[in-house]
């Protein structure tokens, strides 16, 4: 997309008239560590969904099904909060590129 010039900005001070357009911003590109879901250790407590600051935990019918890697910044709070099963985490952070 060609960046807008100053005359093309919405009148007023930096107002964004399109609701919910943060969805278009690929914050996933900031990520250094990637959360990976180990379904076998998941007890579906949804702590990850509650704590995720970027709404990047995908759920279906009330169950965790994976991550939205377009928006996940890799903060790791999901992995930290994950209780796992029998001492085994259901979310682990893996360095990008490895």
């Amino acid at each position: 997309m060609k960046p807008k010039g100053w005359k093309d900005l919405t009148p007023g001070g930096g107002v964004i008239l399109e609701a919910g357009n943060a969805d278009e911003y690929n914050t996933g590109s900031w990520r250094a560590f990637r959360p990976e879901w180990k379904e076998e250790n998941c007890i579906q407590c949804l702590f990850c969904w509650v704590f995720c600051p970027d709404s990047a935990v995908i759920t279906k019918d009330g169950k965790m099904t994976g991550f939205d890697y377009k928006h996940c910044k890799g903060c790791g709070v999901c992995a930290y909060e994950c209780p796992g099963k029998k001492g085994q985490k259901a979310i682990v952070m893996v360095e990008e590129g490895k």
Binding site: K4, G14, V15, L17
Partner: peptide, 18 residues
């Protein structure tokens, strides 16, 4: 609508010019 959003180097000068 959103007001007061973060504007990074790619757009800051356009806002100031306006």
């Amino acid at each position: 609508k959103t007001i007061g959003a973060l504007v990074l180097p790619d757009y800051f000068m356009e806002h100031k010019k306006a």
